[in-house]
Design a protein around this nucleic acid. Structure first.
Length: 516
RNA sequence: GGCCCCUUCGUCUAGUGGCCCAGGACGUGGCCCUCUCAAGGCCAAAACAGGGGUUCGACUCCCCUAGGGGCUACCA
């Protein structure tokens, strides 16, 4: 019964839609509209990212709106935490609850009059009706339907109630909701920017609640009123909204509002291919930050989940992604979040940054309390930036996360280290040889002048030859003695950076350990 | 159960009827480099879910099956 025509890349219901001139600016406006119910999930971040990209790429506007119509799940800290996540990632908004904008307020609980107005319109035009069916009655209905082997769902009983009945219920204090009446119009088709054409059978839908008994609208009504009033051109959202899109289109039609372009982005799955959730480990954006992942790495990685630029390019910065992104290349299929590839990409981004930039990122990590992954508490804060800048080239290409900097650098800052006696000789030597090597090394370390990498290395290589040893068996005990670990940056740069006094005393300690 | 969406190496993906006995990346294995660890270089194993069509020719188009996921609330 619907006549569907294609108009500027989207299908609209020609029977009922008269484009609202004020809503037709031709300007791209997208939004991210999270519910403040907890931490911003990585899947939500990806949705926000795609939405943001679509706006930024065309020079459009990106709006942040808080959808807090669910009082039961409301979390007072969530809004700030969501904004913190987005800011950290560089997903900034042109209008939002904190900065306002031409369509303020941007928080749904402050916009109730708009929803009431729309509800009134729908009631008056006969597209909606009041219903006094209680949650208990709905429960009974469900049980009966299941017992009869029928699909559960509201039976539209409210359609046949009289105004007197509703008034009586209201007077009796029964909860009243407003339901939208599903028209008997056969099939409904819509065009999604990523899915293409999708068709639904309206006869399978039941009349649904648009206004709850507490006076708050449901998502279905609220987001439409907001998106219309805020002149949102592209509704970018998660795929769980696909099945309810027909309802949304029906509301637009009843209100005589123009449809936005629907962009349902694919789901992100966990390693086990189920919807990403808490049990898949770090799932919130903030947790990745706390793990030492760079925002540019997450940004890059997430952009590549469900989208690719079309060639083999993978490592991109913000600007390149904004420039190359296109809805046309967004995939329909869900993708698994591969943490290992994220960590690899994080390493790539770390290697690409300047030492000065890395310094800014690493210093706060090192300065955290020891219990939170920082340097040992015995090391005084703030750390010496100049010294740190000298050290960074030694570990720069070895870091895959910022947090690894602590282990990679702590021995440079500590007074003494505590090597494992077993580890001192290394795999290819023995304690006696190691002790002798260290004794011999001590002479060089005490006297070598200048105390610089190149000179030290030349002396040590000469020593190895003199002792009839390969470099490994000589260098390893020294490395373990000086750094406390068998894995470390290039030995002579390390020795020079730590300084003669501490190096000599560490080697002496190691000799004592081997003899004791 | 019903409805909707999805299906190329383990994972992210390229591929829009012949360029593909399927390309890149992560991961894995090997080799090289090398004072350890990295980084880097080279090489290798690894996929078109299955079955029918359409076509001179299908990863690409159609149908069916299977599998996965989502939705089915006075939650979003």
């Amino acid at each position: 019964m619907f006549i569907v025509i294609r108009l500027s890349g989207r299908y609209i219901l020609s029977m009922s839609t008269t484009p609202d001139p004020s809503a037709h600016t031709g300007f791209v406006r997208t939004r991210f509209a999270p519910s403040p119910t907890g931490m911003l999930h990585i899947g939500g971040v990806r949705t926000a990212l795609f939405s943001w990209l679509i706006a930024k790429q065309t020079g459009g506007k990106f709006v942040l709106r808080i959808e807090d119509t669910d009082r039961a799940r409301y979390d007072a800290d969530a809004e700030a935490s969501i904004m913190e996540s987005l800011r950290w990632l560089g997903i900034d908004w042109d209008e939002g609850p904190d900065i306002g904008g031409p369509y303020a307020p941007y928080t749904q609980s402050e916009r109730l009059d708009l929803y009431q107005e729309a509800t009134k319109k729908l009631l008056e035009s006969g597209h909606a009706y009041e219903d006094d069916t209680t949650p208990e009655e709905l429960g009974e209905l469900r049980v009966a339907q299941q017992a009869a082997g029928k699909p559960p769902g509201y039976d539209n009983r409210g359609r046949y109630k009289t105004k007197d009945e509703i008034d009586a219920s209201r007077a009796a204090g029964k909860p009243i909701v407003v339901r939208f009446k599903i028209p008997d119009l056969g099939k409904l088709k819509f065009d999604d920017a990523v899915l293409g054409e999708v068709e639904f059978d309206l006869s399978l839908l039941q009349d649904f609640v648009i206004m709850k008994s507490d006076g708050f609208p449901t998502y279905h009504l609220a987001h439409i009123v907001d998106d219309h009033q805020m002149q949102i051109s592209h509704v970018v959202r998660a795929p769980e909204w696909i099945p309810s899109t027909p309802r949304h289109i029906l509301i637009h039609r009843a209100l005589d509002w123009e449809l936005p372009v629907y962009v349902h982005v694919p789901l992100i799955l966990g390693k086990d291919k189920s919807k990403l959730s808490k049990r898949h480990g770090a799932a919130s954006a903030i947790e990745y930050r706390d793990q030492g992942i760079l925002p540019e790495a997450i940004f890059n990685f997430l952009a590549l989940l469900g989208w690719s630029p079309g060639d083999d390019t993978e490592v991109m910065n913000r600007e390149e992604i904004v420039e190359r992104f296109s809805i046309d290349r967004v995939l329909k299929s869900p993708s698994v979040f591969d943490n290992e590839k994220l960590v690899w990409m994080n390493g790539v981004h770390i290697r690409q940054m300047s030492a000065e930039n890395l310094l800014e990122r690493v210093a706060p990590v090192l300065e955290r309390p020891e219990s939170e992954g920082g340097l040992p508490d015995s090391v005084s804060r703030p750390v010496d930036r100049k010294f740190l800048l000298r050290l960074l080239p030694l570990v720069h290409e070895r870091l895959k996360t910022l947090n690894e900097a602590t282990d990679a650098l702590s021995f440079f800052f500590m007074e003494e280290v505590h090597p494992d006696v077993e580890a001192l000789p290394g795999r290819k030597s023995d304690p006696e040889t190691a002790a002798n090597s260290l004794e011999a090394s001590l002479e060089i370390l005490k006297t070598s002048e200048p105390f610089e990498p190149e000179h030290l290395e030349a002396e040590f290589r000469a020593l190895a030859e003199k002792l009839g040893l390969k470099p490994g068996p000589l260098f390893t005990p020294v490395r373990v003695a000086v750094t406390g670990s068998s894995m470390a940056p290039p030995l002579f740069d390390t020795i020079a950076a730590i300084g003669r006094d501490r190096v000599v005393s560490r080697v002496e300690n190691a000799i004592q350990l081997l003899k004791g």
